[in-house]
């Protein structure tokens, strides 16, 4: 099993396109950091105009913690794409290259193969999120410094003291791993259906974009289905920046994501075990 995992990780990390994800994550982060350096005040004035009418806030508002929050919020759609690039390729890529049939001639069960491929995608996701934490949080702190963090919700203005922020980011990144693992498992399921990796990657992105729009639309009709969409729960990391932290809601979101992940993996194993491998 460990040997198999090593081989799968080797396959992932020997491909140059794997590193494109890390470059893209860094590039998006740099662009947002640059925007905050050059035009952060205008953004803050716009976002806080309701507050600024009545209150005067002094101090380093655009600090590293605040900028990281903006970066993470902006990456809601982008990071799933980067995860799908690898997970969507895991089975379909092998089929496309004609190595899947050969792989299955080895004395390993199909279930085990799916599980190991999922595990390797999970490890890739963890590394990607750690990279994101380094370039967004660490670099933002270096550029903008530390300070009390402002969290702007639609009807609430929250200030978190600077010595109370770091653990929230650790928890938020851990939650992001969980959310992205759900995306990886869905991309793997779609990958099992296809014989080339473009289809699963685009389908994953399509599903994420459509469901994310549904999750954010304020239309009563969609309010009934929102709690069941995984995209509604993917932003559970934001709960750690609330006051008080809604642990119950975050726990429920985590459970929903775990259920989706388990369901996707189970479906992948079920389908892949019955699939007629012709390539």
């Amino acid at each position: 099993m460990i040997q198999l995992l090593r081989i799968e990780l080797y396959k992932i990390f020997k491909r140059p396109r794997t590193y494109i994800s890390f470059v893209i994550a860094a590039a998006i982060t740099f662009v947002i950091q640059l925007a905050m350096i050059t035009d952060g005040k205008t953004f803050m004035n716009f976002a806080m105009q309701g507050i600024n009418e009545q209150f005067e806030i002094q101090g380093n508002i655009i600090n590293g913690y605040f900028v990281t929050h903006i970066i993470l919020q902006s990456l809601l759609v982008h990071i799933p794409l980067l995860v799908a690039l690898v997970a969507g390729d895991s089975l379909a890529g092998e089929a496309n290259q004609g190595t899947l049939r050969l792989l299955l001639t080895k004395p390993i069960s199909r279930s085990k193969l799916v599980f190991v491929k999922f595990l390797s995608s999970f490890i890739y996701t963890v590394i990607l999120i750690i990279w994101l934490a380094i370039v967004s949080l660490l670099l933002s702190i270096l550029i903008f410094g530390k300070g009390d963090m402002i969290n702007l919700k639609s009807e609430t203005f929250i200030i978190i003291l600077k010595n109370d922020v770091l653990w929230r980011y650790m928890a938020a990144f851990a939650f992001a791993v969980l959310a992205m693992t759900t995306i990886a498992s869905m991309a793997m399921l779609l990958s099992a259906f296809a014989d080339n990796s473009i289809g699963p990657i685009i389908s994953t992105m399509g599903i994420v974009v459509v469901l994310a729009i549904l999750s954010n639309l304020e239309i009563p009709l969609f309010n009934y289905i929102k709690p069941y969409l995984f995209t509604t729960h993917m932003i559970g990391w934001k709960g750690f920046f609330d006051d008080p932290v809604p642990l119950g809601a975050i726990g429920r979101s985590a459970m929903v994501l775990v259920c989706y992940t388990t369901g996707f993996i189970a479906c992948t194993i079920f389908y892949f075990n019955r699939k007629d491998i012709t390539s």
């Binding site: 976002a47 309701g50 507050i51 009418e53 009545q54 919020q73 809601l76 702007l152 919700k153 639609s154 009807e155 609430t156 203005f157 954010n216 304020e218 932003i235 559970g236 990391w237 934001k238 709960g239 609330d242 008080p244 809604p246 809601a249 975050i250």
Partner: peptide, 20 residues
């Protein structure tokens, strides 16, 4: 006296609004 505060949800992207 305090006036109301509101930010478009598209910008804020609230997660959990139970408290609110």
């Amino acid at each position: 006296d305090v006036k109301d505060y509101k930010l478009p949800n598209g910008l804020a992207m609230d997660y959990n609004d139970e408290l609110d």
